[in-house]
Amino acid sequence: MIPITVDNLSVTYSNAKLALYNASCAVEPGTITALVGPNGGGKSTLFKAIMGFLSPNEGNVKIGGLTVEKAQKKQLMAYVPQSDEVDWNFPISVFDVVMMGRYGYMNFLRIPGAKDRRLVMESLEKVGMVEFRDRQIGELSGGQKKRAFLARALAQEGQIILLDEPFTGVDIKTEKQMIDLLLQLRAENHTILISTHDLASISTFCDRTIFLNQTVLASGTTAETFTQENLTMTFGGLPMTSLAFQNSEVDA
């Protein structure tokens, strides 16, 4: 079981847009942790920093004590992207996308073996996408696209799975199936971090919750932190003066 620790993370984009400021939090091993915050609150940015897709201006991320790079070499981390990050016109089939989850285990030429093929089929089965395996990825519905990428994360067998808004545009039945799958993964000791705007479902399956709006405003067990007060602070009347950087921006 592997924890994620985020320490004092700040990220500024090249257009000088400050996306994250002094964010610190821990994702406990073997739990499902929800990441909530408004649009533009920095959820995807935090994911990308954890995955090492962008390098933070300050602070660091540790995966079970390892640097992100080392953790990735060990195939510890899988990522399910938000849909708008994918080129859906790319000439590739669902099966091939899921197979890309296995590349890290293959030899230099990336020739899949029997085990790779078996795991790809099993992953497709788990998300109920076997019949769509030969479709070009753009020819899927929104929910099916999500499931295809979830299958890739499963095929990767990462101990840590990050999912960026997997439920957006997904019907209730599919969401339920995906949640069951996440609970099953938790039972298999995976550590899961998931961002979502579906606040109602969080208490049904997330052990812990992190509230994020440019910085971590609150985090802890869902039972303790999922309060009206924290929700208002995150989504509505954010107490501006409580954040040091807001003051300095006004001064400047």
Partner: peptide, 18 residues
């Protein structure tokens, strides 16, 4: 295959340690 992955999804390429 790696080049195709790089064209399609460089983030995933990174995520699996390439």
């Amino acid at each position: 295959r790696d080049l195709l992955l790089f064209c399609f999804d460089p983030n995933h390429a990174k995520a699996i340690g390439l």
